[in-house]
Design a protein around this nucleic acid. Structure first.
Lengths: 340, 340
DNA sequence: TCTACTTATGGAACCGTTCCCATCGTAGGC
DNA sequence: GCCTACGATGGGAACGGTTCCATAAGTAGA
């Protein structure tokens, strides 16, 4: 019916068609257009048009060593926060003529390793990751090979790389001040187990310090969020316990906020009476009950900053520059869930 | 400090190190391992280990013409439905040793064209897309070159490709039956403008047919959802209009559900009293008010099916097979928003 | 023992680019 | 008018693999 396989045309064919050399065609398509005489330029353009020629990125990636691909390793693609950051990364990439190859690790350390190897095998020109496990060794190797690396949030002790993320200490201070200001005095902090993820760690310790500093009562529940029984019980106990001061939940991220909201829903607790404050802004936070107070992260900016770091590293050269940290400030959005 | 650029090792280096030929090393790494003698196998494995060798996918993609990359064009990456499907696609790819390159077109037709060219230039072995604009010509060219193509939902008249998606007609019947069963008699259908997107079109027309067939009153509001004024006014008018039967909103997708919920929130309408049913299940639907009734799509399955189609096409050969449709059934999740 | 056939291995061409270097005019300086 | 320099262009060797084909060794059949 249709022509079975009308292969792609190559640079050589364009060259012949235009009566020019491979070299000139190559120059035309890789930004050295001005070096060519106007005549040549038009005839190459015409030939390429006629043959519907598009450079083969695989080939140019091979010879030039520049794949024009940025890799991104995401711990959980279904987390809206990750997607939002990814969106920023993608835009920044596009503006620079880079493509993005995203791998989702589903919070699985083995998968993460596998995907890292994969991205490496495509010779990505830079890597943005929010890591799950401890890939220190592999990442160190990557960096030594000259691939710029940016870590989202989670810091890794050993590896020389930029870290882009929230200023967790100030974010938690903001949250605690807000809760205290609204009269809540006993807090339950909900988080997934910190494990190796440094922002979870950072937020948790700042919570504990902050609570102490403000003379508030603070408890912590760090269990996997899919264990709903355990979570419900913890929250139930917390609320049932006799206490003199109003109680509030503080959620370490969007997933925790979702889990907490479900639990409170199941327990029939009234939002506001029981305070609720979540880190990460989500579409639906304004819609549940009187609205859920959140700390919004500048996700787009975080994504863009990651790519910027990557490019700076690539241009300056890896080894001369010390690792840096770029911290963003969270933005408090007060709603009814912290209003008694 | 660290060694500036300790380059990747190549197949040739491994060959030398192992005392073998390039050919043998290549065989070792591309699934022809058994053809090699046990001795050779072990020495190659050892050498590769010592040199930390990983095949360069750019290079192998070049000669063999098999990039091992599947491309995916997503209209809106921030739509949870898209992400869920993408998750299915990704898993299916991984199981087959393929990588996924995702491009987000932000519902922008120009961007879509650009990204399509990009994916083509990487010689993707297959393409999954839910398209925005009319790229018929480009896609036709792609298919003729032998690249398998699967369209998510949106059908394109001209192009010979599989279409994977929801059985929209039955989904709408399900929704209408449910609403009628619950006693709602006047409906307002909310959707983004159908434009070229065939599922929007399909849902809309089935709504109109279905309403007529059931002797219900049906209105339609098809405007961009970010025009909140227009939306709020439409909903407000609909609710204010004197009528004898209970009224309900039917939302064509997740974004519409979000917009509608916001609008009802702003208008202070009580869910249930005013019915609300949305296509696409979202995390938060159970949490808002008495819960929002939804039609859930089997997103994961849709994603996997897309990749299956792709592979079948690739294996059988493109041109022999007629285009097919794979339709999935929606699953109704009844909640309080359709309970008076 | 010789031929026929299989199995293990290597040599070399090729995939579509990029990029170094050579070539060829032609213009400017003396 | 000759030499130098520079701008425009092309030739051809990489890049790191895959794959066709040849070769060597071993094995079975007669």
């Amino acid at each position: 019916m249709t022509t079975p396989t009308h292969q792609h045309s190559t640079i050589l064919e364009v060259a012949r068609e235009a009566g020019a050399s491979k070299t000139s065609v190559s120059r035309f398509f890789s930004g050295e257009r001005e070096r060519l005489s106007p005549n040549l330029q038009t005839s190459i353009a015409a030939a390429a048009q006629r043959l519907d020629y598009h450079p083969n990125r695989m080939a140019s990636g091979l010879k030039g060593g520049r794949s024009r691909i940025i890799g991104m390793l995401v711990a959980d693609i279904r987390n809206p926060f990750s997607v939002a950051v990814m969106h920023g990364v993608e835009q920044a990439c596009r503006e620079r003529g880079l493509s993005l190859m995203v791998c989702n690790t589903d919070n699985n350390s083995a998968l993460e390793r596998e995907h890292l190897a994969l991205l490496t095998s495509y010779r990505v020109e830079g890597l943005v990751m929010n890591a799950v496990g401890s890939l220190d060794r592999e990442l160190q190797a990557l960096v030594e090979q000259g691939t710029p690396l940016v870590l989202l949030e989670r810091e890794l002790s050993q590896v020389e790389a930029e870290v882009v993320g929230l200023d967790n200490a100030r974010a938690l201070d903001l949250a605690l001040d807000h809760l205290q200001g609204r009269g809540y005095g006993e807090l339950l902090y909900l988080s997934e187990p910190p494990g190796l993820a440094s922002p979870r760690q950072a937020r948790l310790t700042r919570f504990q310090q902050g609570v102490a500093a403000r003379a508030m009562a603070g408890e912590v529940h760090c269990q996997p969020l899919d264990e709903t029984d355990s979570l419900n019980r913890a929250i139930g106990n917390f609320l049932a316990r006799p206490g003199t001061l109003p109680k509030a939940l503080l959620c370490a991220n969007g997933n925790a906020t979702l889990a907490a909201t479900r639990a409170l829903h199941a327990l029939d607790a009234r939002l506001g009476e029981t305070g609720l404050l979540g880190i990460d802004e989500l579409d639906w936070c304004e819609l549940v009950g009187p609205g859920i107070t959140t700390l919004a992260q500048p996700t787009e900016a975080i994504g863009r900053a990651a790519v910027e770091c990557l490019m700076r590293r690539r241009d300056i050269g890896n080894y001369t520059m010390p690792a840096r940290r770029v911290h963003f400030q969270a933005n408090l959005i007060p709603r009814g869930s912290t209003c008694r």
